[in-house]
Design a protein around this nucleic acid. Structure first.
Length: 336
DNA sequence: ACTACCTTCCGCCATT
DNA sequence: CAAATGGCGGAAGGTA
């Protein structure tokens, strides 16, 4: 496979001379990066690369773009070659995120507001959403972003319907994703839209396999959240140790020795989400790990993770991950 | 799909 | 006075 994100010579060539192969139309994917962009975002290229492998055809071509079109420094310190913005048509443009503050430079914003009609799809990873929002592309649309930036994002862009508990959201031809690893889920969803669920599943299997070998959790870092004060941390610790019990807001408030009102207020301030959403995320994380480990049936996992019954767990999975539990179970059982 | 019921969230304001 | 806290109640959303 000659076309990877790191291969700048090929990304340059596809921009200058569109490629065609007999019988297929090549889909050009542009990953828009900026100085100090988060290097993990390069991983989303893998979904497209693996889709090509599954098809045994160069269905996607991937290129890195930037404002200067030169070498751009990554969050990891080293630099990587990119091509300059161009107004040729892309199938899909995706804005990378960066470490912290918003990456929305005037040139980037202008590029997106001008090229918007030319692209079939536009996406963002994490804080890349700032660029789309600043270009007005998200006005009136549903979008997601990591909870850490959600409050500021909502204040800056009140017209955007932010749903912060989703891994990724698709509204029309705009796709936003909530975290770095959620960018991978996003890219798999894009592949699924183009090539169907069979190809997407094959891609997922390979990605998941690699990630497990690398020892990374592919999940939401809810279980890693540290509250700022002891009493909220105590609640998180208690919840993690007692996921299979009720855990109503009143229960949790009692553990924190606060009134229900003050508890929800402080909890939200320290963790960025409401108590019931946080509990749901912990349960999802736990359920997903159990399913991945092949540790029981969907029924028993639902019980162990505290969902009560499998129907409730299924709804929670669909709400937050856009996938039913069975998909995860199947994806992992195929190579176990 | 519809409904009746329940829980949670959160702005507002009073109290400590 | 400022900051933390608690109660109320409507809206939203989840459950059965």
């Amino acid at each position: 496979m000659g076309t990877t994100a790191l291969d700048s010579s090929s990304s340059r060539s596809f921009i200058e001379s569109p490629t065609t192969f007999p019988g297929i139309v090549v889909h050009h994917i542009g990953l828009v990066v900026h100085p100090d962009f988060h290097i993990f975002d390069l991983a989303i290229c893998s979904a497209f690369e693996l889709a090509n492998k599954v098809l045994a055809e160069p269905f996607y071509e991937i290129g890195l773009l930037s404002e200067q079109g030169r070498s751009v420094q990554t969050s990891a310190g080293f630099s990587i070659d990119t091509a300059p913005f161009s107004h040729r048509q892309f199938d899909t443009l995706i804005v990378a995120s960066c470490n912290g503050a918003e990456p929305a430079t005037p040139a980037l914003v202008q590029f997106f507001s001008e090229t918007m009609p030319d692209n079939r799809r536009i996406g963002s990873v994490l804080t890349g959403a700032y660029v789309l929002a600043a270009a007005g592309l998200l006005d009136g649309r549903r979008a997601t972003i990591h909870w850490y930036w959600a409050a500021e994002f909502k204040r800056l862009f009140p017209k955007v319907k932010v749903e912060e508990d989703r891994l990724f959201i698709n509204d029309g031809n705009i796709w936003t994703s909530a975290g770095m690893s959620a960018g991978i889920d996003l890219s798999i969803a894009l592949v699924e839209q183009d090539l169907g669920s069979n190809v997407a599943r094959a891609v997922t299997n390979q990605l998941v396999h690699r990630r497990c070998v690398g020892g990374q959790s592919q999940f939401f870092a809810m279980s890693e959240i540290r509250a700022k004060t002891g009493r909220i941390q105590a609640v998180l610790d208690y919840a993690k140790a007692n996921l299979n019990s009720e855990l109503s807001v009143d229960d949790l408030a009692r553990i924190a020795r606060l009134s229900r009102r003050q508890f929800t207020r402080v909890f939200h301030a320290e963790t960025g989400r409401s108590p019931s959403k946080a509990i749901e995320n912990l349960r999802l994380e736990s359920a997903r790990l159990l399913l991945e480990a092949g540790n029981g049936t969907v029924d028993s996992v639902a019980k162990d993770a505290g969902f009560g019954d499998r129907e409730r767990m299924r709804r929670a999975f669909l709400r937050t991950l856009s996938q039913p539990p069975q998909v995860i179970q199947r994806a992992f059982s195929s190579w176990r």
